[in-house]
């Protein structure tokens, strides 16, 4: 029997590489804003994560006896490295970035079968492992404006030598978490540097929002998961902030501080590890929003996107099971 090719014989010309490239492009405003406010650290993170990520991918592919020529072009490692670099603090030293990358590429991705088979978002898995293993290093954020120049940053990245005290400080989410008897407003009033930090984070979040909306318009993903996540996060903040607005961060704080927008548009939209159907994506996003609020407010960590995403990754197969859409003609 001859080996004929089944229809369709036309193809839309869509390629996975194209999607990956568009995601990378959409992250550029956020990356640049982050560089503008927080210095060269993120750039070094990114370079190192990409180089190491590609090397690790090549190594694992060799061990798994997969073709090598393919991985360089698919772009999935670069996206993972990019997300890791954006999420890690700018003052992360090389070994921290290495640990996160190693865990993301080797453990979270390839040990589960490689591209398309990983149940967890690789970048978030790498991030979370570092957050658990090296909590101190993971919370060193520079003050806006006060960052090191490229040479000093380079030195810090490899040797961890340099004057840190002058340039690091608590993040706004951290400060809100540890109010020490003050109200939120009092905290803002007492710490102008944290207000400045908050402004910087706001612009970074806005940049990610812009990139996210661009991807939405390009139909790289549907609106369901991001909107559900942002809406549920805001709703939680309004609900619990209503009683004691002095002690809880406002909805605006939650939406525009920390990694909220990065998470909403770049992390939870990762199709591999999220729920499949539209209804499922709504539940998936809403669950992440709620978990972010819960962990930020009552948990041990000031930010919670990574944990929330990983927890909902775990739930995704179950969500898929119960949100199977009705097929055509299958009336309830």
């Amino acid at each position: 029997m001859m080996n004929s090719i089944s229809s369709p014989h036309l193809h839309g010309g869509n390629r996975s590489q194209k999607i990956m490239l568009l995601v990378i492009a959409a992250a550029m405003p956020g990356l640049l804003t982050q560089l503008y406010w927080f210095g060269y650290g993120t750039l070094l993170n990114l370079m190192w994560a990409i180089v190491l990520g590609l090397l690790l991918e090549a190594g694992v592919l060799l061990l798994r006896q997969r073709p090598l020529g393919f991985f360089l072009t698919d772009g999935s490692v670069i996206v993972t490295a990019l997300l890791l670099a954006l999420a890690l603090p700018p003052m992360a030293p090389w070994w921290l970035v290495s640990t996160a990358t190693l865990f993301a590429v080797v453990f979270a991705k390839h040990l589960y079968g490689g591209l398309g088979n990983n149940p967890f978002n690789p970048a978030m898995a790498g991030y979370a492992i570092c957050l658990i293993a090296f909590p101190a290093s993971m919370t060193i954020w520079t003050s806006p404006y006060a960052y090191l120049d490229l040479a000093d940053q380079w030195l810090w990245f490899w040797t961890e030598q340099g004057q840190l005290d002058a340039i690091t400080q608590a993040t706004p989410l951290d400060a809100i978490k540890h109010l020490q008897g003050n109200t939120v407003d009092e905290m803002w009033a007492a710490n102008p540097d944290i207000v400045a930090y908050g402004d910087a984070m706001f612009w970074v979040n806005i940049a990610y929002l812009i990139g996210g909306i661009a991807m939405l318009l390009l139909k790289l993903f549907t609106w369901h998961a991001p909107v559900a996540m942002l809406a549920s996060l805001a709703a939680m903040a309004v609900l619990f902030g209503a009683g004691e607005p002095d002690l809880y961060a406002s909805a605006g704080n939650h939406l525009f501080l920390g990694a909220t927008m990065l998470g909403a548009f770049f992390i939870i939209t990762d199709p591999v590890s999220s729920a499949t159907s539209r209804q499922g994506k709504l539940i998936f996003g809403a669950g992440i929003g709620i978990l972010i609020y819960v962990i930020r407010t009552w948990g041990n960590y000031p930010d919670a996107v990574a944990f929330a995403v990983l927890l909902m990754n775990l739930a995704a197969p179950l969500i898929d099971q119960y949100t199977r859409p009705k097929a055509y003609g299958q009336q309830p």
Binding site: R64, Q65, R66, P67, F70, F71, G114, L115, G116
Partner: peptide
Amino acid sequence: ATDRQPKLS
């Protein structure tokens, strides 16, 4: 393309 190729296996 990412499957294990027969020759390699």
